[in-house]
Simulated scan of single mutants.
Amino acid sequence: MDLARLRRLNLFGVLQALRGSAEPVTLTELAALTGLSRASVDDLTGELTGQGWAVEVSPAPGSVGRPARRYRFRAEIGHVLGIDIGAHTVLVSLADLGGTVLTSARRPVPPGIGRADRLKAVDDVVDRCLADAGVDTSQIWVIAIGTTGVVGPDGEVTVAWAAADWTGVPLAEHLRDRCMGAVLVDNDTRLAALAEQHLGAARSAQDVIYLHAGLHTSAALIVAGRVHRGSGGAAGEIGTFPVIPWATAAERLAQCPVIPPDMPVRDAAAHVLSAAREGDTTAMKAVNRYANDLALGLAAMILTVDPELVVLGGGLVHSADVLLPRLRDHLEPLCLRLPDLSPSPLGDDRVALGAIRRAIDHVETTYLAHNTRPSPRT
């Protein structure tokens, strides 16, 4: 290996050690983390500081004598945007290069609005998020977007069921001028699974099925520690198989007679689950049927992947205490081995958090690993 490449690898190792530390670290600590000599770390840290990737911080409180120099990664050197474009909501979160969310903006949108209006809502929420943080597009390195539907490799939505007029929308192209680097687009459920892998219930698991249970039912796969897209970005879309009742499961649950007149559709399923928790027999039958509908598709995926864990996410995760026991009962006779079932601990921003993680991964492999930064667009 030539010396220039070796130095670049060592620089990246020191940079990663700085970025991975929650607190400022000394040269001695960096040497221990990287396996390099203290003299090498001193030299490399000086180079990173000169380039703006690292900064020396004040001595630790209470230090006596000659305090050790301490350094931290300059996460504020750039930013990423994580965007969740759902059928009913647009959410935009801004994070620094350490993945810390600095601000978020959200707007409800009707599922039946046209493409132009939905894209206008996305633009408006992006503008509001950036304005709230005092950040402009020249400081955005990467944008990652989670959207309903199947997404092709060029960032175009190839098929969408939940949002009107959304099939064929060129999302990556639409937002390309809003950042310095790449615009990455993926399915929203898949990015929610990525958030679970890094921040939620799936942190210690290698093979996972993420089940989104809400107004729509969908799933994503983590196989051998990696979120699985498939060759065309359609992995996990088992709900499109007409034999499996995922497409109508939430709608049938929302038609339960216990629902009061004029209750919004978004609240109906949660109301039925709440009534089942209180012992209403009609609601309990509806929830049992819903759990059976979910189990029919989920069992096929479990038998295919043999995961160690199934994570329940989506809007109905708040009723996991009611839903998961019934789901387990319906899965058990269908599966050779029943995996653990766990509710997601993450909130309604899970897709945006997964998008941020996707953007940070791209920053790491594209920029940090090569000691470069995105160039201004011409």
Rank of each mutant, 00 (worst) to 15 (best):
G35H: 10
L36N: 12
S37T: 15
S37C: 04
S37D: 14
A39D: 15
A39S: 14
D42S: 15
D42L: 12
L44P: 07
T49G: 06
G50T: 09
G50S: 11
P59S: 09
P59F: 09
P59H: 06
A60L: 13
P61W: 02
S63V: 08
S63H: 00
V64L: 13
R66Y: 06
A68I: 00
A68P: 02
R70M: 09
Y71K: 05
Y71C: 01
R72D: 05
R72N: 02
R72I: 02
R74C: 13
A75E: 12
A75W: 07
E76A: 12
I77A: 15
G78M: 07
H79W: 05
L81H: 02
G82L: 07
I83S: 04
I83G: 05
D84I: 12
D84F: 07
I85M: 10
I85V: 15
I85Q: 05
G86M: 10
A87D: 08
L91N: 06
L91G: 00
V92M: 02
S93L: 08
L94W: 05
A95T: 09
D96T: 04
G98L: 03
T100Y: 04
T100K: 13
T103A: 14
T103I: 11
S104H: 00
A105C: 09
A105Y: 01
R106Q: 11
V109G: 06
P110N: 08
P111G: 00
G112M: 09
